[in-house]
Design a protein around this nucleic acid. Structure first.
Lengths: 250, 250
DNA sequence: AAGTGGTCTAGACCACTTT
DNA sequence: AAGTGGTCTAGACCACTTC
């Protein structure tokens, strides 16, 4: 039936887009507003269909896309849940470094530095804030089986991560993104990385306990939360003598 | 209506799987057999629905997945086409190296070596062939604006790439995967890459015209054609002083 | 005008989970 | 038994392309 036609143009959004895209946006907005938090169950397809006055099939298509983007997780018989970094299945979503042999494991962190600074121009540009705005700077070393392997520096907007301290980081077991989610209500949904090969400088060599000039994989990342808002910039130096960065192309 | 039930179990495949997955497999088999070649139009959804005796919606779901995997390309009003590497939109699908500034461009190739060899054990394992089987070995340097940037070695199963010569490679303009498609009927659908940082050895330094010990991004890749059959192994050394490897995480 | 994929609806039944 | 997502069907209309 042609009921769709009359709904599409004006009922849900000012500019035209398919109904399911409008529904997808509405769901994303509810996630962003915190109506449904990471790990929680969202309303069933039928409930959402009633709420948005569309058919279940249209809600389904919206959720299908959110599921493909790892924003939500569907579980047959149980319902649809907001994706969370507090879960085994999410542990390695943003950690592409894998051991050349053996099973992937999660590294332990040692925090070397946690400071508030003024955002340099390049950082402010990447985080979409003003130069000079408060930023939290973190430096840490991550180890696998007590072998230092990743030296990482992070820059986080001070306005969002107010109250982030070395104590909090040290006390926390598990992925940093899980902490960000619980303590600061900020869930990362995607990230963009740029990789290059560099040589270990004196500081890096010292912290990673390697020779000066050892080749390292330099990984720069900008992470985004709901609404494609950048909320983290990090630069990692990966020692790849017994690990590699795994990537699938399609 | 419940007609689906009786169809699912036995009509199309011996073991149970959703109808649309069975349709997807049948379409993939037609692609693999060469019934529809890269760049060609496949039958419309309605025609396929009649042929497979299922509804258009079921065919649609099968094609949706193949489209998401970049196996086919849908074009509204025109039809569904078999993906091909002979196209602007596919040029950079398997080349993640981007200039730090400016637009991405396609590099020029200089072929240094093209030989038939016996597959070493490691290569044979990766290509799923027997050790000692005929393999074509290629070495080339790729340049952007006449600046040597990628040194690459490739191993290809001799049985598939019979007749691949230096002349053929040198005469060909455009991506190597386009040539493989046209000359050897082998279309790459996905690849798995492992990245690490290494130092330039004397040979690499000479060919890339860089200093000994310059850090390079080592990219090892296994590429697969229809049916997830491995048909190429390559190892590239990327100079990343003014380029980077771009990757999106989600 | 005809054909293609894209969107939307409505309804049925299945597989899985919880009560 | 009831509720959830997963699959399948049937039919309508829209947007786009070609004739």
């Amino acid at each position: 039936m042609g009921a769709a036609t009359s709904l599409q143009s004006n009922q849900l959004a000012p500019t035209f887009s398919p109904l399911y895209q409008q529904i997808k946006l509405l769901i994303t907005q509810s996630l962003q507003s915190g109506e449904w938090k990471p790990g929680e169950l969202i309303p069933s397809e039928i409930e959402l269909a009633v709420r948005f006055k569309v058919s279940q099939g249209t809600v389904r298509k919206a959720i299908d896309e959110l599921s493909a983007e790892n924003v939500v997780v569907r579980r047959q018989g149980k319902g649809t849940f907001v994706a969370t970094h507090h879960e085994a299945r999410s542990q390695f979503r943003f950690l592409r470094l894998k051991p050349d042999q053996g099973d992937q494991q999660y590294p332990t962190s040692r925090f070397i530095e946690v400071r508030r600074i003024r955002a340099p121009s390049e950082i402010s540009r990447l985080l979409d804030i003003k130069t000079g705005d408060s930023v939290i700077f973190i430096r840490r070393v991550q180890s696998f089986d007590n072998v230092p392997t990743i030296l990482e520096e992070l820059w986080l907007p001070g306005a969002i991560f107010k109250g982030l301290t070395a104590e909090l980081l040290n006390d926390y077991k598990g992925p940093m993104y899980a902490l960000f989610e619980t303590e600061f209500g900020t869930h990362m949904i995607r990230a963009s990385e740029q990789l290059r090969a560099v040589s270990a400088d004196p500081v890096s060599a010292d912290l990673l306990k390697i020779d000066l000039g050892t080749p390292l994989l330099n990984v720069e990342r900008v992470s985004y939360t709901y609404g494609d808002k950048p909320v983290e910039y990090r630069r990692g130096l990966y020692l790849t003598s017994s690990h590699h960065y795994q990537n699938e192309l399609s």
